[in-house]
Simulated scan of single mutants.
Amino acid sequence: MSEDINIAIVAALIDAQPGYLSGSSLADSLELSRVSIKAHMDQLKNEGLRIEAIRNRGYRLISLPESLHPSVLEAMLRHERVTADFRFYKSIDSTNTEAERALADGCPTPLVIAAGHQTKGRGRLGREWFSEDPGNIYMSFVFRPHLAPSRMQRFTLWMGLELCAELHDQFDAPLMLKWPNDLVANGKKVAGILTEARIDSDQTRDLVLGCGININSNMDNWPEEIRQRATTLSQLKGTALDINQLGAALIRRGLNAYDAFVDGSYEKDFDSRWHRFNALEGQTVTITDHHGDHIGTIEGIDEAGALLMRDKSGITKTYQAGDVTLSGGLKPWVA
């Protein structure tokens, strides 16, 4: 109950910005005493919100926490008119693992699980995803699409393209999608996507899409190997970003992107998104799969989202999976 009240208070403070919110009117609307309102305000201050209190004027929100905050994030989600179920964990083993547990327990979907810290983050091909920094966002979208597996082939690409679009349109972040699931800028990784599904004979029953996005991390705390190949949005922008606002915007965009994918309306935008945010078009790359290394020039993707590469002999081959390494660095982003 206390958490619900805090969410309502934060939402009211955000709506009142940049003005003041009357303590008495807030107490009346929440059916609480002025003393109780002050206690909740003090709690929120202790949790990192800067709130100014002026006699006969009320309360004013000056600034929000620099890390993910459950009440602030949920208030932002209400502001974005997001109605999906939402769970937040200060720390968890993995949001994708928690999504699997939630599905096993029969959770309603869509569900979004977010965390400020992961102890066992997962990447593609069983790799570990370094996710111990509270300045980042780790989240999983949980769905039960009940669609034929053949319809899901471009799902991860579409979701990655939409996240790129949101980060560019709302935060002017010059990200591109490196097939099949990395968001990159200036040749360095900013975010990764991991899609996991439970498939019956004729339909995709359960679907989890996990995202790890580097926002305001202190890169000095990263292992040297990761600093060489990854960066953060704040590093790209030269300033810290509002992580709760950004998280809410990405959740809203992700849920809307899923709806568009399920009803098929995404198809009218897919090609334009792909040409705008594809980091590999015309690039010379090495694709590594279980057959070894394959060198050639990227020509695009097919209808199923598989990568098309022309090798040195001029033959175009199709790759459903593999790690892509670029020979000359990523092309610059163009608006």
Rank of each mutant, 00 (worst) to 15 (best):
A306K: 12
A39F: 05
E267C: 09
T316M: 01
A27F: 07
H40Y: 12
I14Q: 14
W129V: 13
Q320V: 13
H69G: 11
S91E: 10
V10Q: 05
L125P: 02
L250K: 08
E303M: 14
M159T: 12
S67W: 04
I251S: 03
L307E: 01
M152L: 15
A321T: 04
Q320L: 11
I7L: 00
G254F: 03
N56M: 05
A99D: 02
G328S: 08
H290V: 07
D169I: 06
T231N: 09
S71I: 00
Y138D: 00
K268M: 05
I226K: 04
Q320K: 08
F143H: 12
P134F: 03
N136F: 04
A16T: 12
A12T: 12
A260Q: 15
A257D: 06
N221L: 14
T83L: 12
R60M: 02
D271F: 07
S25R: 15
D42I: 10
V82N: 02
M309K: 05
K188D: 00
W129K: 09
T83K: 15
F171E: 01
Q203T: 14
P145Q: 04
L21C: 05
N6M: 07
R122T: 04
L103S: 09
M76C: 15
N216H: 05
I243R: 10
K312D: 08
A8D: 11
I14K: 10
A304V: 05
A240N: 10
Q43P: 01
F141I: 01
N96D: 02
A148I: 08
D302C: 13
R198P: 10
S201Q: 08
P108F: 00
L241H: 09
L61N: 03
T239V: 02
D28N: 15
R81C: 03
Y258F: 15
T284D: 06
R60N: 01
V334E: 11
G238A: 01
L30R: 11
I37S: 08
T204Q: 04
A230M: 10
R229S: 11
G329I: 01
Q203H: 14
L330F: 08
G212V: 11
I51P: 12
E74P: 04
A102Y: 10
R50N: 09
A102L: 14
L111H: 03
A27H: 10
L64V: 15
I193P: 03
D200S: 14
A249Y: 07
G247S: 15
E52P: 04
A39C: 00
Q235F: 01
T318R: 15
S63V: 06
G296L: 04
L44F: 06
I243L: 04
T95P: 14
V72W: 01
I5N: 13
A248G: 11
T297K: 11
R253T: 13
E162R: 15
F141G: 06
F277N: 03
L73D: 01
G247Q: 03
L30W: 02
A84I: 11
D169H: 11
L157W: 00
P70G: 08
C164S: 11
G210W: 02
